[in-house]
């Protein structure tokens, strides 16, 4: 099970990476490589050239800029897990990371890579969706930002163009009235979720406002459950669970039938709703 032959180039800069992408029809960016190399080994992917962005300076930083937490494309799960900035300003991410695969995968895997790859069963795309993140994308004409609600386009498809790369994730800073919750069901610890849910809300009096419920592993991408969001804002948890019937339309897979996914989606919602309603986080 060895990869098909490919060429390999190290990008010196984002501009260089974009230039290489433009120069090749069948190029893939490699960051952490924890999904990509498995696909290469199995010959499920056989690009002409791999463009390695790991040596590009400036992409491995976590910083606070303009009221956003900026997570560079090369920030790895292990690094984010240790980062006080992440735990302070993006506690949802801190809660989700332990669910991502296993320690050795988290050593190399990047948050940005997960978002760019857009696996429908992965945690990070859903976290971005729940947080209302902005995705910074670089192309030949420079950088642009895409709101997460406009980012996912289909199965493994995103707003990132063929000659573009993701350079950073920008997350609104956590605040005193902000609530976050995360949960997932997986067959075993570290497996891709059968159903998962990342959620954010703003505490408003005794209730919740601005609820964002981002489910994963229930569709082609992470998806928001907007009917349930409205019901939660109205304080109706069981109504929110009932609304999932209209919000979600999962296909069954070998690990969970549609019925199971819907059952677990409801169970997660009850758990997450309780967490969101807890005292300040």
């Amino acid at each position: 099970m060895k990869p098909a032959p490919f060429a390999y180039a190290k990008a010196r800069s984002v501009a260089h990476a974009v230039e290489l992408l433009s120069a090749h029809d069948d190029a893939r960016i490699i960051a952490g490589g924890q999904s990509l190399v498995a696909m290469l080994n199995m010959r499920l992917a056989a690009p002409e050239i791999l463009i390695d962005i790991n040596d590009i300076p400036g992409l491995s930083e976590v910083s606070v800029e303009d009221g956003f937490l900026r997570i560079g494309a090369l920030v790895r799960y292990a690094q984010a897990q240790r980062s006080p900035l992440v735990s302070t300003h993006a506690p949802l991410i801190a809660r989700a990371i332990p669910h991502v695969a296993h320690a050795a995968i988290r050593s190399r895997g990047t948050l940005g890579g997960s978002v760019a790859f857009a696996d429908p069963a992965a945690e990070m795309p859903a976290c971005m969706l729940a947080l209302g993140a902005r995705i910074v994308i670089a192309g030949v004409d420079g950088e642009r930002e895409v709101a997460i609600d406009d980012f996912f386009k289909g199965l493994y498809e995103t707003a990132i163009g063929p000659a573009e790369m993701l350079v950073a994730l920008r997350l609104p800073l956590h605040g005193p009235s902000r609530r976050v919750a995360f949960g997932e069901y997986a067959r075993r610890r570290g497996d891709y979720a059968m159903v998962g849910l990342a959620a954010t809300a703003r505490a408003q009096g005794a209730g919740l406002a601005d609820v964002r419920l981002a489910y994963f592993s229930v569709g082609l991408n992470a998806v928001r459950a907007q009917g349930a969001e409205a019901a939660l804002e109205a304080g109706d948890v069981e109504g929110a669970v009932a609304a999932l019937d209209g919000d979600l339309d999962p296909d069954g897979d070998i690990h969970a039938s549609r019925d199971t996914k819907m059952h677990l989606a409801g169970a997660l919602l009850r758990r997450v709703a309780a967490e969101l309603s807890e005292a300040a986080q």
Partner: peptide
């Protein structure tokens, strides 16, 4: 271990 971190050597290219 790669630079002290546990790493899957099957998911890491030698060239990296």
């Amino acid at each position: 271990l790669v630079d002290g971190e546990i790493t899957r050597s099957c998911l890491t290219l030698a060239v990296q």
